[in-house]
């Protein structure tokens, strides 16, 4: 096109083989690396899930008779049977406040532990310790420590704060405590890592511009941290939403902590109604995904760019 263009006639035709052209779109033999994981996922995740979904549309005769709705009888039962449907609210009533407490509590702790002081390492290791405890030991410990005869009630009565032992376990509070113990370390670790991704010089810059600690936190740190907090909230919510053993062990599995996981297991293990169990399982996943989608939609309104740090 210019006087100096060196293009030869005929060079327009692509010499690339089909293989090259596919490679350009990202399709080549390296995709084989994905194959084991993909196969694995199809066989052990997608297929069973589809199978479960199919199963949920083959309701047992008893359910069909009681609730009608043909193929959808299980789903009709899920919404119509208050014994089942209430557990959606029971689960949310437990999971939402717990996730909120974990995230909101983790922020100041992570902020404080960002500073340097003696014993910081020890303190942060203790905070992370519950990860090794596991739900079952936590449950056992709560039953003994916070039970009617436990040290906690004894100590509280000893210093005269209460006259009667407080009911800490075998109820809503017990499950919540156990979820905080197992969920808070995760929230703390995540928030800390998001916090370390924020360039400290931003805080210094805020300082030189005359912002006090509250304004620096509210106008600089918090907006940059918000997407991370949303992610943390989702992950702790997921943990709390799928609560199972502690709801049984330290909760009131027939009352205030009759969560979805328990209901699904009951159908599966105790009533051997696999189709109803699959229905509850599917609906449980659906409820959770709806909530996550809501949080994600909310999160998309936050600032999403670089936070200037190393993470």
């Amino acid at each position: 096109m210019t006087a100096v263009t060196m293009t030869r006639a005929g060079a327009e035709r692509s010499s690339a083989s089909l293989k090259h052209r596919l490679a350009e779109r990202g399709i080549d033999s390296s995709l084989l690396l994905l194959l084991p994981a993909l196969l694995f996922s199809l066989v052990l995740f997608v297929y069973p899930f589809a199978y479960g979904l199919g199963l949920s549309f083959q309701p047992s005769g008893a359910i069909q008779q009681e609730f009608g709705g043909g193929f959808f009888a299980n789903y009709v039962a899920f919404f119509k049977d208050p014994f089942i449907f209430d557990s959606v609210w029971l689960t949310l009533r437990l999971a939402l406040p717990t996730a909120l407490i974990n995230v909101v509590g983790a922020v100041p702790v992570a902020l404080v532990l960002r500073r340097k002081f003696r014993g910081k390492r020890l303190l942060s290791s203790i905070l992370v310790l519950p990860i090794t405890l596991g739900t079952v030991l936590t449950a056992q410990g709560l039953l003994i420590f916070a039970g009617r005869q436990g040290w906690l009630n004894r100590a509280l009565m000893g210093i005269g704060l209460i006259d009667q032992p407080i009911q800490f376990v075998n109820n809503y509070l017990g499950v919540m405590l156990s979820l905080i113990i197992s969920g808070f370390p995760f929230a703390f670790l995540l928030v800390s890592s998001y916090l370390s991704g924020i360039d400290p010089s931003l805080d210094a810059a805020g300082r030189t511009l005359g912002a006090g600690w509250w304004n620096r936190f509210r106008r600089i740190t918090l907006p940059l941290l918000a997407p991370g907090l949303a992610t943390t909230f989702i992950l702790t919510f997921v943990l709390a939403f799928s609560v199972f053993p502690s709801a049984r062990l330290v909760g009131n599995p027939n009352g205030s902590t009759r969560v979805l996981a328990l209901m699904a297991y009951r159908s599966f293990g105790e009533q051997n109604d696999y189709t109803m169990a699959s229905t509850i399982a599917v609906m449980m996943g659906a409820c959770e995904l709806v909530f996550i989608a809501l949080v994600l939609a909310w999160r998309s309104s936050f600032y999403k760019g670089s936070t200037g740090g190393k993470g």
């Binding site: 692509s14 010499s15 690339a16 090259h20 490679a23």
Partner: peptide, 8 residues
């Protein structure tokens, strides 16, 4: 490191 699409 990059395949050609034209020429040799």
């Amino acid at each position: 490191l990059l395949p050609l699409t034209h020429g040799e």
